[in-house]
Amino acid sequence: MDKELTGRAQRFLDELAHCMDIGLSVSNVTNDGKTTLLLPYNEELIGNKDTRIMHGGAITTLMDTASGTSVICSLDDFEICPTLDLRIDYLKSAEPDKPVYGFAECYRISRNVVFTRGSAYQEDINDPIAYCVGTFMRLGTEFTPDYFRTRVLEGNRS
């Protein structure tokens, strides 16, 4: 675990109202920006009342956020990087009453675009419930307001 990057990731998540609303948190960020987020089981996110399995939309949010956070933690300086596209393969159903982890890493950072891949899993990363690839657009530091950059990179030091 990289303490500085994990803090950066958590401060970034704290700024996203929807992530706070569904209880997303940072589980781990390594020094090369590989990110794992944790989505607690939440009955409000159920898709099918009979099976009590969380809806795919919650997994989409988990993976979009995990991928985007991995981008933030892989770039030297903080830039806003909106999602260009995302593809998710649902390999098998998640089990109810258990949290879901979202792992993501950047496998290519180019001048304009960052390419990510990752998976969602419950107990074993080698037994994923979903696989995800995404691309993110680099807007550049000049499009990122300083106050926001400071808040995510350094936290509120006042």
Binding site: A17, H55, L62, T65, G68, T83, L86
Partner: peptide, 24 residues
């Protein structure tokens, strides 16, 4: 809906929520 926001700067809806909405 305020609790669906994922970008506080614009502000904009979380991309994952838009995805979930479309899938649903």
């Amino acid at each position: 809906n305020k609790s669906n926001i994922g970008n506080p700067l614009l502000p904009a809806i979380h991309g994952g929520v838009i995805g979930g909405f479309m899938e649903l």
